[in-house]
Design a protein around this nucleic acid. Structure first.
Lengths: 260, 260
DNA sequence: CCCTTTAAAATGTTCGGACATTTCGCAGAG
DNA sequence: CTCTGCGAAATGTCCGAACATTTTAAAGGG
């Protein structure tokens, strides 16, 4: 039996460079190193942490990858952000981080949907929905910061087991997936297509028939490219925009915004 | 006067770990290390390149970031791809790589548009287009792998200078930007919104009035967050899908596909 | 034949040192 | 006052070494 990834996260000791990164991040968040200021030089950090320069640099590399600092040769390490990017991409860097994903994240599962057979997926998404769907869709105006209008969860091969947990406990998706399938998420793919809101869905979202929409498909793959989760989200176009920002260093950040 | 970034790329000697990464990549592409096989161990690479383990590991880290190899503790370095991901994200990792961006890349500028004043941007994109626009839009069926239907280039503050070059020479965008403005691209942001094809645009793309579409806005920022380029692309929804895939390690890859 | 144990091999982490390159401020010449 | 040159400071690159952790497969016992 593969080891429980959650155990691996809680019981496994973090490497030193990661601890140092965490400590520095705490200092940044506590205002010790405000945004716009320069972090102490590597030599000073070596003394402060009683560590080697390589370890310090590894820690700074972590922060750079997180988008917290920006290193500039000959100048120093500039603090550019107090918070890690609110992107699920971050969570994928180290599978263990998937389980520390914040509860109020945009990727929290707000709703449970209803399974549809594979033939209906994904073109006929929405067919066969029950009262749960309508209830969730009606929550649109209550969503202050969340981009979700509704989320239908399709899980292969075992939908019932996870959908119930996801819907009821509202715990992070990745955690649930790992618990249910005993695998950690290794790859996430997002596909974005343009759609058109019709019939029931348009009515539930209080928009006109044929309103343009964005449809986001997410697929989560585990070890060995095993697909074990798919979620679909649709957003009316007149009120939703999805943006992705890439910085140097392979960082990516997602942003959702509502606009009328 | 700031140094010409292109000179910096051609005249500046690459660090050793980058040369080793290039050599290994050549070996992978030549079939010396096929996809699915394991790269020689670090110890063997140390002997082969007469280098230190740190330098070898830096080189392998480059290949890992490029999506060429995947390192697995206790097992080895697995070759997972023979080509770097065809993503513009790669180009942003090191500004110098922007200038080596392949000519046939999806991000090559195929067309030149026409400038609109800032008040019209971006909601009124498409207004004021001339015959160039229609000509380009009509090329839709000729695009085998390219996602572009058409591209309108808005350049702030100097549109005329770069648009002419972009349209005529069809050279990589980033190279043109660097030459014209003397700055390298530091940040790229992509925003995706859902739209609806109407009037002239729908006619040019041979689709019905009101066909859902995807609108992609791209913004390029240089040093000091100076915005110097914006491009806008629109795709009819019934034939276009945009997908983004994230793997662990902050890698990202874009994929376009046409589907009826 | 199956399960457990063990050892080898590979990558991950950490330390210490040296030199190179870039940035920036200051001193000095003009 | 302006420009140039120089040096201090910071990060980048590179080398050598040692131990830790994980994977894999072979060896061994039942």
């Amino acid at each position: 039996m593969p080891p429980n990834p959650i155990d691996a996260k809680t019981k496994k000791e973090s490497p030193l460079y990661r601890k140092i990164a965490d400590t520095l991040l705490s200092g940044i968040r506590d205002g010790l190193f405000p945004v716009g200021s320069l972090l102490p030089g590597e030599l000073e950090l070596i003394e402060r942490f009683s560590s080697s320069r390589h370890t310090i640099r590894e820690a700074l590399r972590v922060l750079e990858d997180m988008g917290i600092v920006k290193r500039q040769r000959g100048r120093g390490t500039l603090v550019i952000s107090t918070e890690a990017r609110p992107s699920f991409v971050q969570a994928v860097r180290d599978p263990r981080e998937l389980f520390t994903y914040p509860e109020n994240s945009a990727f929290r599962v707000l709703v449970e949907g209803r399974v549809a057979d594979e033939d209906h997926w994904p073109s006929k998404i929405g067919e066969g929905v029950d009262e749960n769907w309508a209830r969730i869709a009606g929550l649109r105006t209550l969503h202050d910061g969340s981009p979700f209008c509704w989320t239908d969860i399709y899980v292969l091969p075992d939908y019932a087991a996870i959908a119930q947990q996801l819907g009821r406990t509202k715990r992070p998706v990745y955690e649930q997936i790992a618990e249910t399938f005993g695998e950690t998420v290794q790859r996430i793919s997002v596909e974005i297509c343009a759609g058109s809101l019709r019939g029931e869905r348009a009515k539930a979202l209080l928009v006109d028939e044929g309103t343009p929409s964005l449809v986001l498909y997410r697929r989560y793959c585990g070890n060995g490219n095993r697909l074990f989760e798919v979620s679909v989200t649709e957003h009316p176009a007149d009120s939703f925009s999805y943006s992705l920002e890439f910085n140097r260093g392979w960082q990516a950040a997602e942003h959702w915004s509502w606009s009328k």
